[in-house]
Design a protein around this nucleic acid. Structure first.
Length: 380
DNA sequence: TCTGGGGTCCTAGGACCC
DNA sequence: TCTGGGGTCCTAGGACCC
């Protein structure tokens, strides 16, 4: 890694909610909550800062949000619009550096070495405000995680800077849970060792880190001391593709569940073929009414990508479970991906399925994924 | 109060092979 | 009767992130 890098994190403020407020002036200044419909099993995707005043947060059950803020404006997400705005946002970033790494729809890292990160961050914030009518928060630092944390501490509509000189001061009083990769479980363990802040972390003996946290301990040590060499902008191939669905009411009807499995298999297959992957491992995920969640996986002799091949494996796995317990969520996944294009189908006598499958995919691409279904998926 | 959907990475144990 | 060590692949679960 070069001696000193200049990294910027751009993070759109309350992204989905902000776009809704931009496009609907009557929503401005009001608590806007984008996510599931109130009264359903679902969560908040994003909410405006007005809604946060009531305690509403991302990922909160929508029913809880509704209790906290019954007069809020509840909206379903409009991903098509958000994707377009996202694309425009990253195009603006690309005017300033070719090294742009989107990490999600509303957030991305830039490497602008050796330019002045603060002045570029200012320009990008300005340009996004002017042309897209929304605000972003930027963080500037010499490494990724500190750029991220700098932004985090300056939300919304802010700009934070962490230099090598002030990195340890910046970290000192921050709770360990603000470090990337340190979630509730790790916070709990750290607390038991008397560690609450990033400053506390630095008082621990070096050997303690690996002893307590294994491989992650080494990373934790580096995070405590402002060290992070992770590069920006390295493309990584997908490792898995999956689809899952939670039912409004727990389901026990096996025929119905199998039909859902078929639909999920089709959706996974479609995405696999679309990105020219095939998969050697197919897995299912089942969540029961008490939230117990199990996964079952099956590795096949050869990679697959056709709907019936995926469905057959998923169905086999499901039937082996033999439990009549009510099901809350069902999922199908494909992993062990390889790049060698579309695999030879094992079922339905080879070639014919291939052709049919291509025709179906073309239709799905054109009209959306609901147009055509595999036999078992049609029954609703 | 009831907990989405899409991912990544890590760990641990068992099977199997040399 | 007691009994290796290493490597790889696979499965299942868990923590975490957006």
């Amino acid at each position: 890694m070069e001696d000193s890098r200049v990294i910027i994190l751009i993070d759109a403020d309350a992204f989905f909610a902000a776009i809704e407020q931009r496009d609907h002036p009557e929503y401005r200044g009001k608590p806007v909550i984008v996510g599931a419909r109130p009264g359903t099993r679902g969560v908040v995707s994003t909410c405006s800062y007005e809604a946060r005043k009531y305690g509403v947060r991302s990922a909160m059950p929508i029913s809880q949000a509704y209790r906290l803020c019954p007069h809020g404006i509840y909206l379903p997400p409009n991903f098509k619009v958000y994707s377009e705005v996202s694309k425009a946002m990253f195009e603006i970033c690309e005017k300033y550096t070719p090294i742009v790494e989107p990490v999600s729809i509303d957030e991305g890292y830039l490497d602008v070495t050796p330019s002045d990160g603060v002045s570029i961050a200012r320009k990008i914030r300005e340009e996004i405000r002017e042309t897209l009518g929304m605000t972003v928060t930027a963080g500037v630092s010499y490494c990724r995680y500190l750029a991220k944390m700098a932004a985090e501490e300056n939300k919304p509509d802010g700009l934070g800077v962490v230099t090598r000189e002030n990195a340890l001061d910046f970290l000192n009083d921050l709770p360990v849970g603000k470090l990337p990769g340190v979630g509730p479980r790790t916070v709990e363990t750290l607390l038991q060792h008397g560690v609450r802040t990033c400053g506390d972390l630095r008082t621990m003996p070096p050997a303690w880190f690996e002893k307590t946290f294994g491989k992650f301990g080494t990373r934790l040590y580096e995070l405590a001391f402002g060290i992070d060499d992770t590069p920006v902008g390295v493309w990584r191939a997908a490792k898995s593709v999956s689809e899952e669905t939670t039912f409004e009411e727990d389901q026990t009807d096996k025929e119905f569940l199998i039909a859902v499995l078929a639909r999920l298999s089709q959706d996974v297959g479609f995405r696999l073929r679309e990105s020219r992957y095939s998969a050697r491992t197919v897995s299912i995920k089942v969540r029961y009414s008490n939230f117990d969640t199990i996964t079952r996986a099956k590795s096949l002799p050869a990679p697959v990508s056709s709907d019936p091949d995926i469905f057959q494996a998923a169905k086999d796995l499901f039937e082996k479970l033999q439990s009549g317990r009510p099901v809350r969520l069902l999922g199908v996944g494909a992993s062990n991906l390889s790049d060698q294009g579309v695999a030879q189908p094992m079922l339905l006598g080879g070639k014919s399925w291939d052709k049919a499958s291509q025709a179906v995919d073309a239709l799905r691409k054109k009209y959306g994924k609901k147009v055509i279904n595999l036999g078992a998926a049609i029954r609703k």
